[in-house]
Amino acid sequence: MQTVTSPFDAAYWQARYATPGRAGWDAGRITPPLRAYFDQLPLGLQPRILIPGAGRAYEAEYLHRLGFQHVVVAELAATPLAELAVRVPDFPAAHLWQADFFQLDPKEKFDLLIEQTFLSALAPAQRPAYARQCAHLLRPSGKLVGLLFDDAFAGAAEPPFGGSRAEYQALFAPYFDFVHFETAYNSLPARRGRELFVCLQKR
């Protein structure tokens, strides 16, 4: 796959996580829309789940505590991965990948990809490659599920970057069917009315 470059590399994210006040997007816990979605997933199927750009990976922690055994975290910066390992000592070390999402082997197939602020962390020029890589990493009929900011964040010079419904529709339409694409009804108060809950199914 062609290399996707960005000024927001591992060193950039390591510095942001290490600097107090520079991780303002971090909710400190799993957000209610994803918690509600995870709570209704059938545990018996044990899907293979990827959480790219996971940061401190509260979603991975929650899924693990629910009993999902095949949750993989991919994150550029070392610090949040180390924090997850301390918070959840029995989380499989082999499932903590310090890796560039765009360089993951498309032979690594997943049933479910979870989106939680990762798209907003990417340089806008990377978004088409993000949508394409999500499709490559999912098995047929696999799903991309998560939250997208429905806010332009005008003038943002560094992450998080916002977006609009129309932009996301154009971005994902070549690869996915839209199962659910609506304003989240149970967002955190600070994000209420400003994020979309999406469930997209690979064609």
Rank of each mutant, 00 (worst) to 15 (best):
W13E: 07
R65T: 15
V145P: 00
R48G: 00
V72S: 07
R56Q: 11
F8Y: 08
F197A: 03
P174E: 01
L147K: 09
L144V: 12
P159V: 08
A94Y: 05
T31F: 03
F102W: 12
R139I: 04
L137W: 01
D150C: 00
E61N: 02
D177H: 15
P80D: 01
P42G: 06
L112T: 07
F172D: 03
L147M: 09
T19H: 12
R48L: 00
A15R: 14
V198L: 12
A166I: 13
A121F: 08
Y175A: 12
V4T: 07
R194W: 03
F178E: 11
Y37C: 04
F38P: 01
A156F: 07
L200P: 06
V179R: 13
Y12G: 08
Q201W: 00
P7C: 03
H70V: 00
A166P: 09
V179G: 02
Y12H: 08
G21L: 15
F101L: 11
I51Y: 04
Q169D: 08
T5G: 15
R48I: 00
A125P: 03
L171W: 11
L76V: 02
F38R: 12
Q126G: 15
I30Q: 14
A154R: 10
G193V: 10
A23M: 14
G24K: 13
Q169G: 06
R35V: 14
L45D: 03
L43V: 05
Y58V: 14
R56F: 02
G155P: 11
R16A: 13
R203T: 12
P160M: 00
A121R: 15
L171A: 03
P80H: 10
S120L: 07
F110R: 05
R194G: 04
Y17M: 01
V88Q: 11
E158I: 06
G155H: 03
A18G: 11
T183E: 04
E108M: 05
G44V: 09
P189I: 12
L104F: 04
D105T: 04
L96P: 10
P124N: 05
P174F: 06
G146P: 03
C134H: 00
F149L: 08
F8V: 00
V71H: 01
G146Y: 10
Q46Y: 09
W97I: 11
R127K: 10
W97K: 02
E83Y: 08
A54S: 09
H180Q: 10
H136M: 14
I51N: 02
Q103A: 13
A121S: 13
M1G: 14
R203M: 13
A131V: 01
R56V: 12
I49C: 03
R192N: 06
A15L: 04
A173K: 14
F172Y: 08
A156C: 06
V72Q: 00
P140M: 05
Q2M: 12
V198E: 10
E167M: 15
Y175M: 12
H70R: 01
F153M: 11
A173P: 01
E182R: 12
T79Y: 06
F38Q: 09
Q169I: 06
L188F: 11
I114D: 09
G28P: 08
L144G: 04
T183I: 14
F101I: 01
S141A: 14
D151L: 15
